[in-house]
Amino acid sequence: MSTDDRSSYLETGAGDGIEGADRIDRIRTVLGREETWAEPPAGLLEDILRETGRNVTPLPTRSPRRSHPGMRVAAILALVLVGLILILGNGQVEEEGTMVAMEGTVLAPAARGQAMVRETPSGWYIRLEVRGLPPAPEGSYYEGWLWREGEGVSIGTFHMRSTEPVALWAGVSPSDYPVVHITLQEEGEGPAPSDRLMMSGTMPDG
């Protein structure tokens, strides 16, 4: 049985006495399926790098700005309507670090959780495990901040559409910026922190 006979059978499905024809038929079936040819969404690698804490650049410090009251109300309504409780599972690997209790604000009263803060050679790793915070409404996203009086540094963005804990990174010391804030941001509104504060927590010695 020559290779040409088998590749011809793979190509056409025609031929008698082909060795392994049943296996080649299976390959032909796979080649006809949509999932074999489907491509992952563009930008997925960037999302992965963001979630792993890569490519997250701390933003310049800024003061919170006021958002339009109507937009704020819309964001609150969207969160209430979603009403979905999302529980993040525990990681498979035990990690040591400083634990920060996170509480939801009036914009997300059901949100609860904790942030584990650990120093690494490249910065501070912050593992956020939250429940009760719904996925960010379409066109918006959540952003984490390390905060001190009047100024904050971004520690990454996420949308809560995954069941995994959120990995964030900080390039400033939590001892200098002892408060962890989670804000709801609107896409296209720039990098400044909004005043839609969803969750907050303070370092134990902060």
Binding site: R33, P40, L44, R161, A167
Partner: peptide, 19 residues
């Protein structure tokens, strides 16, 4: 996508896998 049959869920699964 073979297991989940949904592109959105498959994208989530792919992202979680690589994380």
């Amino acid at each position: 996508l073979s297991i989940l049959g949904d592109r959105g869920l498959a994208a989530d699964a792919t992202q979680i896998t690589f994380v």
